[in-house]
Amino acid sequence: IRSFIASLTLCLLLLTSCVTWAEDINIATFSLDTLQVDSAIAVMTPIYKRIGYDMSVIRFPGKRSLVEANSGTTGGELVRIAAIEDSYPNLVRIPYAIGSLRVMAMTQSGQHAINERSSMIDKRIGILRGVKILDTLTQGIKREVVNSIDSLFEILLNGRVDAILFSEPDMVKYITDHDLAERVTMGEQAILEMPLYHFVHKSSSDITKKLSREMKMMKESGELELLVESAHSYKHCTSNVVSN
């Protein structure tokens, strides 16, 4: 009997050792439904899978996603520019870009296109609330801050601002979806272009190490570049998303 129990125990250990259980991790991002966020989800979801985690995204309004991630309420922040490290010291940046932010200026058709920041100095500029880089970019410039992409285009089309700023893929999609090609003009070049990164709360150093190691290997093999390019083909991706 003892021999049978020992054999049974060994078999159970062997079976359970072959089963891998994925852990859940919640990652914060801002509440706006944008292609930039969709692309980041499409990049990070399979990478988390590779290190044994199921990633769910929790959306928060504006800067609250950074506050929640920095406080440790969530496991990290989905996608931001590197500069947020200065203001949110509890967030550790994974040092491999998962995309890039191309900030474009949009004007009404017939108006001069804006291709650089110096051209905005004497203009009224519309931006979205909670996007830190846009807030920084328009410091010292007359601006109007709104809560949605719909409102952003509305204040441009009704003449309340001279131009609006936002990411290129989301501008292109909005123009296409709302048949605005004849009414607006996008600048020929980006006002600003910066790499985007994923951030993990400092309490999860093990996850940080695993992600960094996995993404380093993917970068060296070329897999990361292919994944980012595929995600940024501007196709909508599916994910576990919770709104707050």
Rank of each mutant, 00 (worst) to 15 (best):
S3Y: 11
A6F: 12
S7I: 11
T9Y: 14
L14D: 08
L14P: 07
T16R: 12
C18G: 10
E23W: 11
S31H: 08
S31Y: 03
T34E: 05
V37N: 01
P46K: 02
I47N: 03
K49I: 05
M55E: 07
G62A: 11
G62C: 02
R64A: 08
S65R: 00
S71C: 02
G72A: 09
A83M: 11
S87I: 03
Y88H: 11
L91R: 01
R93V: 00
A97S: 15
I98W: 04
V103Q: 07
M104W: 09
Q108W: 00
I114V: 14
R117N: 11
S118A: 13
K123G: 03
R124E: 09
I127Q: 02
R129Q: 15
G130W: 00
L134G: 04
D135C: 06
D135K: 10
K142Q: 15
K142S: 13
E154Y: 10
I164Y: 01
L165D: 04
S167Q: 02
D170H: 07
A181W: 02
E182I: 00
E182D: 14
I191N: 03
L192I: 13
Y197G: 07
F199R: 00
V200E: 05
S203T: 13
K209Y: 10
M215I: 04
M217H: 10
E223H: 09
V228T: 09
S230W: 08
S233M: 12
H236K: 14
H236I: 07
C237A: 15
